[in-house]
Design a protein around this nucleic acid. Structure first.
Lengths: 331, 331
DNA sequence: TTGTACGCGTTATCAC
DNA sequence: GTGATAACGCGTACAA
């Protein structure tokens, strides 16, 4: 038997209205009464029902974190955990509960999405892992419920996004390689459906052009280590004289290093490798991987802040975090 | 304006009762009517409110995943992500929503715990990261709501747990080292407040005794790589002739390897190292780490299954998963 | 300062 | 087969 305000009311000899007022800290109530009510509530071990409250208040104090392809891609692991962690911490701190959900790209016809939103009356939603041309992105935009996209640059009245300055990050990495004397630099990118891939490519190209370097050695992988290996093979085949690789993920960078080792090339003596993300792995591998750091945890906390901002009437906005180039042993 | 069954009722010219029946697939309703109602619902883009439903049904179709010290310990990362992933997938598949929450050991006087349970009317709860002597464990046990503990061997009417056969896992690892000819084997354990630590110690001791080995070289760390390094120093100081280390986590094992390298010892030529967990990192480091595999994802899926089982009236039970020794390059 | 009464969106129990 | 109507637990005009 869960105890409700009605029980408390009876016990305290007042009406439920009074109990409700006491609980919610209204001032137009006799201090004596409030004290008594509060004490009785305490004694009876009363716990308010968020469910009932949501129903009448029309807001659930809940935000949803929807992740695309969470399980499928081993890749996401390192990135996602910190994002989840950040979202969770910030949401809790602000008094929101967090509902976690996932979609596969196939079934994400917005059906499960909108359904979840209404079913749980989500106050706001954070989307991660969405591909640029996901069919239901438009629906998200049209929807009235505030949402923030991670790494997808959509903007709307109730739609914000948060991302890293990927172009700048890539540019810094490549510029560093160039300053280190490299001229023939391969770029192992992520898949084409990721917005970040476009941006990182732009950064790569820009840095190369600025330095007056002509060639363009680009391979499209899938962010995982296997495609890092592929990338090395593929690019080296096109040009055996490459002396450096910039990879769009640490996992691909590690794969690249392993492949290079297998081919008898030393990192960083013979060829330099630089990654992207700065996952834990980056400083556990040998040689320790130079990389572009992403403040993943902050992606999460900021996402929540942006949502709450929109809940308070702010327009959708664009948050761009700063990358940070970390030089370790692989360059 | 969210559309409710009332709107549909009006539109269809029937009562809300009929609508409700149509939606929930009752049979005592005219096929024609049901069809019409369903179609109108579809047209109006109706989404049922789980909130309202929960209120009257007294069950929310929601399970909570409560993680202790999620952010604080970098250690948990690799273990937790897969657990979360498993819980999420299985919960979704079974029609449950997942609420994620965290506690710090300081403030976990059950207040936030029980509060969350009632606030969201959780049908069941999964706890991870709890330390053996957390004060509020008892409360969890007493509570009427079904819960399953991960890696804490409590049992009750509505309380199950799920864990690995840690003793066997440790034993297998140490036995392997012994079979490989090692006699002086150090054990770098996790902290004392973890149940798994006790079990792994037992496994280590058992294997040593079985082989008639007398010495016992044990160090208590904290599961992270830093304490792996410490462990090596500490134990080697006590006995410079140790030729192998069994570590209660992969992270500690990696730390141990790094420390050994720093001391000029080759792994595995001079000394063998074996870890526990089988996190991704294990096969990215050089040399690739031999370790005891934990089916983390299954921890998650099983946990959900157990909860649902209890929801259907089953008693609390104990699920023990099988470890698997993975031999790679560090031994 | 306090109480009455209504509504939030559903399901369930009755009648009809 | 279908429709009132009463819950579910809470917030809140409006009265008193």
């Amino acid at each position: 038997m869960t105890v409700t305000i009605k029980d408390i009311a009876k016990q305290a000899g007042v009406s439920i209205t009074t109990v409700s007022r006491a609980m919610n800290g209204y001032r137009d109530i006799h201090p004596e009464t409030r004290k008594r009510v509060l004490q009785i509530a305490e004694e009876m071990n009363y716990r308010p029902s968020g469910i009932a409250r949501s129903l009448v208040m029309k807001q659930s104090k809940t935000i949803g974190l929807i992740i695309s392809e969470m399980t499928r891609s081993r890749t996401g692991h390192h990135f996602l955990f910190d994002v989840i962690s950040g979202v969770n911490d910030r949401a809790m701190a602000l008094g929101y509960d967090l509902i976690l959900a996932t979609t596969s790209p196939d079934e994400q016809h917005m059906v499960p999405y909108m359904e979840l939103c209404h079913r749980r009356q989500l106050d706001g939603v954070i989307l991660s892992g969405v591909r640029t041309k996901d069919p239901y992105l438009q629906e998200v935009l049209d929807s009235a419920i505030p949402c923030v996209l991670i790494d997808v640059p959509l903007l709307g009245k109730t739609c914000s996004h948060i991302t890293l300055d990927n172009r700048k990050g890539a540019q810094q990495a490549v510029e560093y390689l160039i300053r280190s004397g490299h001229r023939r630099i391969g770029f192992i990118n992520g898949h084409r459906e990721a917005f970040v891939s476009e941006e990182r490519l732009l950064g790569y190209q820009h840095a190369m052009e600025e330095a007056g370097l002509k060639g363009e050695w680009v391979f499209y992988g899938d962010f995982d280590d296997a495609s890092g290996r592929e990338g090395v093979c593929h690019l080296l085949e096109k040009d055996p004289d490459l002396t450096a690789f910039f990879c769009a993920s640490d996992l691909m960078a590690v794969g690249a290093m392993r492949e290079l080792e297998g081919m008898g090339k030393k990192v960083p003596q013979d060829v330099s490798v630089i990654g992207f993300d700065d996952i834990d792995l980056a400083h556990y591998v040998t040689p320790m991987l130079s990389t572009v750091h992403q403040p993943r945890y902050r992606f999460g906390t900021q996402a929540v802040d942006v949502i709450v901002g929109m809940l308070e009437g702010e327009q959708g906005k664009s948050v761009v975090l700063e990358p940070e180039l970390l030089i370790r042993e692989s360059t």
